[in-house]
Amino acid sequence: MSEPTNVFQQARKHVKTGNLSFLTKQVTEWKKLTQLIQPLLPQPEHWQVACYEYGVLTITGENQAMISQLGYLQKQYISQLSQLDELKALQKIHVRLRVKTRPDNKPIQTLKQITPATQDMLRNAASFVSDPKLSQALLRLASNKT
């Protein structure tokens, strides 16, 4: 079996620029790989290539069930993906959970004021509750203090 080639081996031809050009090339290659593998992996999921080095493809997904499925069926996916020219040396797939991101990173809106009617209901509920901690929490909520 031949040694896998490191596609991202840095050439010493360029002047050092803090490895920015090298990292940019890596990210570009991983984006291309992401587009290639996306339709071949379990759906519906938005897979992303995080790394491909020494025959190990590291990809991320947001759905734990899809990640588990890919992990269990890894051998079948390796045989399918290794037919692509870019992944001929593929030997193993590492699948990691990616944290879901909210669109536009907008802050979650919180309710600032409780209506007077709701405050009265909370105070009345607090008077009926026998648990002192719960009663105190309801009173705090009714007074809009956190």
Rank of each mutant, 00 (worst) to 15 (best):
G18K: 11
I78S: 03
L73P: 01
N6A: 11
T28G: 10
L90A: 01
Q26F: 11
M121H: 09
I37A: 00
L70F: 05
W30G: 00
T58P: 01
I37Q: 02
A50F: 10
W47M: 05
Q83E: 08
Q9S: 13
G71V: 03
A142N: 11
V99E: 14
I114L: 14
Y77N: 01
P107N: 02
Q136K: 15
I37L: 01
K32V: 11
Q9D: 13
K88Y: 03
H14R: 15
R102D: 06
I37H: 00
Q74M: 07
N105F: 15
Q80W: 04
S135K: 05
G18E: 08
N63A: 02
D120C: 13
S68V: 07
N63G: 01
L87T: 01
T115S: 14
N63T: 02
A142Y: 10
T5L: 14
L122N: 02
I114P: 03
P39S: 05
A126L: 08
T17S: 13
T115Q: 11
V7W: 08
R96S: 07
T24I: 14
A65V: 01
K100E: 14
S79N: 09
I93L: 04
Q26C: 13
M66I: 09
E62N: 06
Q69V: 00
L41E: 05
L138Q: 07
A142C: 11
A65K: 02
N6K: 14
Q26S: 10
P42Q: 03
E86V: 02
T115P: 09
G61A: 02
S130Q: 11
L36A: 03
N105Q: 15
S2A: 15
N144I: 07
N6W: 11
Q76L: 09
P42F: 00
G55V: 03
S79Q: 10
Q113H: 07
Y77R: 05
A50M: 14
H14C: 14
